[in-house]
Write a protein that binds this DNA or RNA. Structure first.
Lengths: 219, 219
DNA sequence: GTCTATAGCAAGATAGAC
DNA sequence: GTCTATCTTGCTATAGAC
């Protein structure tokens, strides 16, 4: 680890800690710099803006999620149950960052920003997340339509993103509404997976791989 | 129109124009006030913060969308076609604000912020948007499962929000990827609506009203 | 209640020296 | 890579006009 990397992570760690403690607005760059033991100018040498510091969230969360889901995933081969525990694990891991989530969107949605979940730069983190959902599926006893099978991990990751979006906006006590959304939709997703093998469904399922291909290639 | 309302809209119009011309960051409150022909203090008399000015986007876009969709909607009774022209009309109306969309999310996603599309304060704009989708359905020849019918406008509006989210992140030339998403998913949505009447689907469709009820009530 | 003018603070961001 | 000094700008406060 170079000196540069160490300084960088000193700053990120200090920033995320202060953000969690005091909130984003009430954490000043001066306070972050002081807590990290560097000058304000140095902090700006590594991060072009205060918002860019939110990227620390991104770096931490994918790895933490995989780790947190590992143990609960050993308990069941039922897809619905596996999905449920995986999503609940994410809620637990992400909880300290809930208040920051709005800011996170602001950063990620700047046009061309590498933090967009669909960007080239997010490829590694995205692969980690999709790999987790591949494990969710492979450890389950589900059988889905043949043409859907290779796409299912990515589809479940998109479903996960939908839950995350809802979570961002959810200010109910104890995230009651997000939990309700998970409880209600997880069985629906499982049912849709099962139904995908029916003949009436074929015209629909056949379109999905094409759709994903079109959306993926080329920014 | 009172003098108060006129001043207010002078400020919003100036702000949105400058935001589009120079971007959000590079537009100062001093410049907005000057362009609107008012003092800085007066701008702050009407809007408590610069971010609050983004709500002008919100106010404009719902009304503009309904207006822009009206004419193309006269052309067809096919649900897929009606959905397609409605979504494409939104793309046209929202296009000048694409670069601002990230900021818009930043504002809207602050916990408890009135700009959240799910908040109490957004109720009027949400009703306008949902009413548009009610018209999309009612002018079509589609028949869906009985229990789904009252919820369908809101479901289509949620689908619309999903497209909008994708659009926010879409930096492809001419919004190629968002257009592809619309072209591909519109027939899928129509097909799902049709399939909803099948018996195998009943356990799934029956859950939807309950889900929406749970998610709606109580912030 | 609506508005101007202006002074000034706090904090995000930058320039330039080392 | 790092620092100090400085600039910029969001925002507030105040005093007063109509």
């Amino acid at each position: 680890m170079t000196k540069s990397q160490r300084t960088r992570s000193l700053i990120v760690d200090a920033a995320l800690r202060l953000f969690r403690e005091r909130g984003y607005e009430r954490t000043t760059m001066r306070a972050i710099a002081e807590a990290a033991g560097v000058s304000v100018g140095n902090a700006y040498y590594y991060f072009r803006s205060k918002e860019e510091l939110v990227q620390g969230f991104y770096e931490h969360i994918a790895a933490d999620h995989t780790a947190a889901a590992a143990e609960p995933l050993t308990g069941s081969t039922d897809l619905a149950q596996r999905l449920r525990v995986t999503l609940l694990a994410w809620l637990t891991v992400a909880e300290p960052y809930h208040a920051l989530a709005g800011r996170f969107f602001a950063v990620a949605a700047q046009p061309g920003n590498p933090l967009s979940p669909f960007s080239q730069a997010s490829y590694p983190a995205r692969q980690v997340a999709i790999a987790l959902y591949r494990e969710v599926i492979e450890g389950s006893s589900i059988r889905v339509a043949e043409e859907l099978e290779p796409e299912l991990p990515e589809l479940l990751w998109l479903y996960h993103l939908g839950i995350v979006l809802f979570w961002v906006y959810d200010d109910s006590a104890g995230l009651r509404r997000t939990r309700a959304l998970i409880e209600r939709t997880v069985p629906m997703v499982e049912r849709l997976c099962r139904l995908s093998r029916l003949r009436v469904f074929r015209p629909l399922t056949r379109q999905i791989p094409q759709l994903l291909t079109e959306l993926r290639n080329g920014d």
